[in-house]
Every structure is written in C-alpha cells, then in structure tokens.
Write a protein that binds this DNA or RNA. Structure first.
Length: 478
RNA sequence: GCUCCCUUCGUCUAGCGGUUAGGACACGGCCCUCUCAAGGCUGAAACACGAGUUCGAUUCUCGUAGGGAGCACCA
C-alpha cells in the first residue's frame, strides 16, 4: 500500500502576521518551508495572518511581500489574506457551537485575571477553569467570546519532524478562546481552518508554537480534519542568548538590503543556522534544495552571528560580477548622495573593489573618491607619504602620465615602474604616495587600476594639489 | 510557579558505540604583497555535570545543572 505522503502533494506555507517588519527569524522559517516543498516537488504558499485587526497594517503586508520578493522565496499562487475569510471562520465556529464543542463565555478580564492570580499563587499552571462551560443564560449587554471545549483528560502526542514525538497532558490545557468578542477568530482557530482549507500537509513554524500545537490538534480532531505533519523550527537567539528581537539590532530583513547584503548571502547564512551538509558552507539555491533533508535540522536554538554573515556576504561579493551587482552598487552610491554620472560606471568598478568589501554599502563608501573630490588628504597618510623627498619623482611621474595617450592600467603601471627605476625606488615607495594623491587616503585597489578608474584629467588635477601640498610643507619646514 | 523544548571549541556545526573529536566564522603567527583586502600554510580553542547500559561512551537511558519557549479576546 502506498503511503499517504507518496500520493499526496506536499504543501507547506509560511504564515506571518503583518504587525511590523518581516523578521529575520520569520524568513528563516520561510526558507526551510520553501526548501522542504521544493525538495519534495510540492507547493509553498504564503498566508497573511491578519486577524488581529488592531495591530495589522497594510504597510506590514507590503513589507512581507517585499521581503519575500527580495529573498527570492517564491510562493505558489497569491498570498491568502485571513481577513478575507471572516465568513468561513464564523461558519466553522457556529458548527462547533451547535454541536456543543464550543460555548459562549461571559467572563470579564478582571475575573480572568483574578482567577489566574489565584492559580499561580497555588503553584498551578494558569488556565481557564471552564466556569462558563455549562452556563445557559446569556448576559445582557456583554458580548461573549467563544471558547473551545478542550478534553480534560488523556493526552495528545505531537509528531514533529524535528523534535520527534512530544506528548502533552490534556489536563495542562484549557478552553481557549476561538472567537473574540469583536467576532474575529483568534490565531489558533484560524490556523486550523486555513491549513485545512488550503490542504496544507506540513506545518513549519517556530518552536515557540510547539506548546500550542496540542490545542490546535484538539480542534482538528473535533472538526474531523486531517492532521498535518509538524516541523517546529528552533529559535534564533541574539548574542546574549535571548530570543532575537529588535533590541539586538538588525532583525528586519529589508534592513539587510539597505546595509548592502546580498539576498543570496543572507539566505546562505540563514540556511546554515540549524542545518548543515557535512563541511559545506556555501550553497547555490539548487544545492540547498538538492541537499536539504529535514533530519539534518538541529533541534537546538542557535545564536545569530553577524561576523559569519559578513564573511558569507563577502564570499558572494567576490564570486559575483559587476553585471550582476552593478545596479545594487549604484543604488548604494546614490543612497550616499553620489552622482554616479560623475565617475566610472559602477558595474565596471565592481571588479576592482570586490575583494575588499564586506558589503555593497561598505564598497560604495570605499569608492567615494571616484565620484567626488575630497577636501583634504587623510592627515596620517599624507604625513607619511607626501614628503618632500618624493617630490621630484612625483613631478616626473606627473609628466609621464600627462603624456600617456592610452590611459590603461598597464600603461600606468609601466609609467610608475619607469619613474621608480629612474629614481632607484621600489615600486611601492612611489605607488603609495600616488595612492594618497588620487584617493586622498592609503587604501584602494591596486594602484594602476585605481589610477585608471580615477581618470586622466582628475588624476593630473590631484597631482597638482598634492604637489602644492608638498611645497607648502617644504616651506613650513624651512 | 507549572508545562514543553534544548545542551560538541567564544559562535555556526560534523560526528550517528571504538576518531590524534573534523570543518567554518572570529582570534594569533607565518607566507604572498604597491596599500587594504583576497588567498595559502599554521596555532590556540569544545563533548555541561553525575549515575547507569556496555568490553568500550561525545554518541544510548535516567537524573542534576544551565539556557530557551509557552501558559492572552497577540500571533
């Protein structure tokens, strides 16, 4: 007999709530979910959980959509909005109410708080005690909530792909609210209905939901729905071991775009958090899908390490080309207020800078002198390299460069070498002063490529400025 | 407080009863070198603790400790 999973199409979903930006932990859950679906030739769906009408915003919905697009986690079909499904939730709620599996509760917030305080004082798990279960009279003027009748005895076992079988005693559970007094369903209720209606076979989510799963399973059973397979992903923690949150800094996925990270690098970093394939570190998307196996997912939480992300990002920048990332680099330059028409084409500059930048943003910052004139030389670099002793060689080089008809790195290199030889200097003794002259400071790509990129006109102008600087220094020294 | 989950270098991890416990980031040293990088070589760095099972435990079981999460008319 064929296993159910063999004849069924695997369908997973990512179900974030639009109450802020798209969280880095969320995108990692989405990634594993996406990977699992792709690996098994299934579907990956997106559902926006916006039943909390108070906190959900359109802006946040857009942030989710933008984040999915930027990271390249493509989903099948259109995103499902829970707010479009209000009537369906009511329908199922009515069904539960009429079958006696749910009941109306008129307890006030104060009453509930009091009850829980008393339970905690007694060393018990704070939980709703079911006092409205058998209530028949409605209370005027109070809009009731609907509670689900959770079994009070026995236990449920969650079969989890990552954590194995986890058993919960029903006595620990309580009658949860499934419809709020405003008529909207709560998370636990809408998830159960949506996952069923969307034919979701595998539920991937953070393992902060593991404790909630038995409650949902009871509703699934009451409704006669098929139980999905669960995979509770370990949390991502901050460096201090606490759950990753805003206070740890960059948790907004789109923030990484702004900071100059490549989406492939972020995804690659994230896939290695809690999952591995031997000693491999860098994976293409195809390799990730090919190698991915849920049994290799580590059940333990992991700490987010920005330095490792930086390294991965740099690996992707080095492996990338100007054709691929030129537009992103240009965007970073423009963010810095640079007019990219005032210098070389970013896509062509990329090659010279890619081995010395951790992010596209840092790369842009390191090449500002290609597009803007600087007001002064870096003090330390100038003091060390723009000395009177190098004045004559620089004058000679200035002339040689001015005479170059073809402004190529090779010709520039030869020019520097020739002048260095003429004055019996090592290449670097002349190269470094030139670097300071054209860039204003002591760091740049190889000097010949640097000078070529700066351009002939600008280079000669900057030589003039530097020569004046040295002359002034000479005069001051007397 | 109760319930659940988790535990290999500082960090991410490999390991799936017998290994000099491997790799990666970060850190130190050396090489390369016109700067900075990149790259190569190299060093230091871990099985939380205690019982048990076993000829033999990092690996299996149970405790302990530590960490995380849940206990809402938030998801």
């Amino acid at each position: 007999m064929a296993e159910l999973k063999d004849i069924m199409t695997i369908r997973t979903r990512f179900a974030p709530s639009p109450t802020g930006y798209l969280h880095i932990g969320g995108i990692r859950t989405a990634l594993f979910c996406w990977l699992y679906a792709k690996k098994h030739g299934g579907d990956f769906l997106l559902r926006i959980e916006d039943t909390d009408r108070e906190r959900s915003t359109q802006e946040s919905v857009n942030a989710i959509l933008d984040g999915m697009a930027w990271t390249g986690l493509d989903y099948d079909g259109d995103a499902v909005l829970q707010s479009d499904r209000f009537d369906r939730y009511r329908e199922v709620a009515d069904q539960l109410l009429s079958s006696g599996q749910a009941y109306q509760c008129y307890c006030s917030k104060d009453e509930l708080d009091e009850m829980r305080a008393a339970q905690v004082a007694r060393g018990e798990n704070p939980r709703y005690d079911g006092r409205c279960r058998n209530r028949v009279d409605a209370e005027d003027g109070i809009k009731p909530v609907l509670r689900f009748k959770t079994p009070t005895e026995g236990s449920v076992t969650v079969n989890d792909l990552i954590h194995g079988d986890v058993t919960f005693e029903n006595a620990q559970l309580d009658d949860l609210v499934i419809i709020r007094s405003d008529g909207w369903p709560t998370y636990h209720f809408s998830v159960v209905i949506d996952d069923h209606d969307m034919d979701i076979t595998h539920v991937f989510r953070g393992d902060d939901h593991l404790n909630n799963t038995p409650r949902q399973i009871h509703m699934i059973e009451a409704l006669g729905f098929a139980r999905p397979v669960y995979a509770h992903m370990p949390m991502i923690l901050g460096a201090d071991g606490a759950r990753l949150s805003k206070r740890h800094g960059a948790v907004n996925v789109m923030g990484y775009k702004d900071e100059g990270y490549l989406p492939d690098a972020l995804i690659n970093y994230l896939v290695r958090l809690g999952w591995s394939h031997g000693d491999d570190e860098i994976f293409t998307r195809e390799q990730m899908i090919d190698y991915f196996d849920i049994v290799d997912v580590n059940p333990a939480a992991s700490k987010f390490n920005g330095e490792k992300l930086d390294w991965v990002n740099q690996q992707y920048i080095i492996a990338g080309t100007g054709t691929e990332h030129g537009a992103e680099l240009a965007a970073q330059l423009e963010l810095l207020g640079v007019d990219i028409n005032n210098g070389p084409v970013p896509a062509e500059v990329y090659e010279a800078f890619k081995e010395r930048a951790v992010t596209l943003k840092a790369m842009a910052v390191s090449m500002l002198w290609l597009y803007q004139d600087f007001d002064a030389f870096d003090e330390k670099a100038a003091k060390k390299n723009l000395r009177p002793v190098i004045k004559e060689p620089l004058i000679a080089l200035h002339q040689t460069l001015a005479g170059l008809t073809e402004w190529t790195a090779a010709n520039i290199h030869n020019a520097i070498q020739a002048v260095a030889d003429q004055f019996a200097l090592k290449f670097g003794k002349l190269g470094q002063p030139v670097r300071v002259i054209v860039t204003g400071a002591g760091v740049s790509p190889p000097i010949d490529a640097t000078v070529e990129l700066v351009g002939k006109e600008r280079t000669l102008e900057r030589f003039d400025v530097a020569l004046e600087y040295i002359a002034a220094r000479e005069a001051a020294a007397g």
